[in-house]
């Protein structure tokens, strides 16, 4: 009895800032869109985020950060995903970033950046369009 696979998404906040308003709002919006959202709260290190993403077998990681430490944490997360052969997990970022940083973040493999003011419906639409549940494992 195979069913549609459900999207699993990790919402994580790297860095030391505790402004979780955006992360909580998006987690709820994803739940209401029918996704399974793993939420790990604030102050996550890149190592913790990647370990969680793998154990939870998520299809996507949404990173929310407002502290300006994205220049360190985002590339580090991508590097760790590659080291763990988990680069098939889509990573998106939410927050506010200097404009010149955005191409750099995309260069290291962040698929999309959503800034404050992005509509929840647009973000959900983007996810539906761009993130597909992984293939099943085979023997």
């Amino acid at each position: 009895m195979e069913k549609d696979r459900k999207l699993r998404i990790l919402i994580a906040k790297p860095g030391l800032d505790g402004h979780d308003r955006g992360a909580r709002v998006i987690a709820r919006a994803f739940r209401d869109a029918g996704f399974e959202v793993v939420y790990t709260g604030c102050h996550q290190t890149p190592e913790q985020i990647v370990s969680t993403a793998i154990q939870e077998d998520v299809d996507m990681v949404g990173l929310s950060i407002l502290s300006g430490a994205h220049t360190y944490s985002f590339p580090r997360i991508m590097e760790l995903l590659r080291e763990n052969r988990a680069e098939d997990i889509t990573v998106i970022g939410g927050g506010i970033f200097p404009l010149e940083d955005i191409p750099k973040l995309k260069d290291v493999g962040i698929k999309e950046i959503f800034e404050p003011g992005a509509k929840l419906q647009d973000i959900i639409g983007w996810v539906r369009e761009n993130v597909k549940p992984r293939e099943a494992v085979s023997l």
Binding site: K6, A27, R28, F30, R31, D32, A33, G34, F35, E36, V37, V38, Y39, T40, G41, Q44, E47, Q48, S51, T52, E56
Partner: peptide, 19 residues
Amino acid sequence: PFSGGAILGDRIRMQRHFL
């Protein structure tokens, strides 16, 4: 039951084991 989605938050309490 409305959306079929879920927020899974138990991990928050278990952070020390993540690594």
